[in-house]
């Protein structure tokens, strides 16, 4: 077994996590992309995406999870998500109104429909996914540093 597997939980948890974590991430992406035609959306999907990384961190320890999604990448995604969302809203000025749905709405209940709403969902999922994982990491890291002092 490689050295990175020394940390984290037992082998059973690790194997199960290895099998499911990809599916969880994929499910999150599915929820985000189908936000405008079914339940869920940017926030719910973002939470599920964040949970897949949280799951990774719980099973394998923080080093593995932070290698997949470093802290600098997290803060970049949080800001980028917000900027994309704001950018979409500002692009509405091209049609004369803030937040105007300026893209063609398309046929209802198709994946490519509803104008800017899927794009907004993607922006929100970036912000929520990275943000929620960042909050989790901060709570965990604070605890580690506190334990070191003890």
């Amino acid at each position: 077994m490689s050295k990175e597997h020394d940390k984290g939980m037992t082998l059973i948890v690790k194997v199960i996590t290895r099998l499911t974590v990809g599916l969880i991430l994929l499910y999150g992406i599915y929820i985000v992309l189908h936000g405008h035609i079914s339940h869920g959306g940017g926030f719910a999907g973002g939470v599920i995406i964040a949970l897949s990384f949280v799951n990774l961190m719980l099973a394998y320890g923080r080093d593995v999870a932070l290698k997949k999604l470093p802290k600098s990448a997290m803060s970049f995604f949080v800001s980028a998500g917000a900027l994309i969302f704001l950018g979409i809203a500002l692009l509405g000025f091209s049609g004369g109104y803030f937040f105007l749905n300026f893209i063609s709405k398309g046929e209802p209940f198709r994946l490519f429909s509803a104008g800017i709403i899927p794009l907004c969902n993607i922006a929100i999922s970036l912000k929520v996914g990275a943000g929620l994982f960042a909050i989790f990491v901060v709570l965990v890291l604070l605890k580690f540093e506190w334990e070191k002092k003890e």
């Binding site: 803060s75 970049f76 949080v78 800001s79 980028a80 917000a82 900027l83 704001l86 809203a89 500002l90 000025f93 004369g96 803030f98 937040f99």
Partner: peptide, 20 residues
């Protein structure tokens, strides 16, 4: 009246450009 949403949009834009 397009000036009104700018009060929110400009401050948010400034905030996230600084953070990025």
């Amino acid at each position: 009246s397009n000036i009104i949403p700018l009060f929110v949009a400009i401050s948010l834009l400034g905030a996230f450009i600084i953070s990025i």
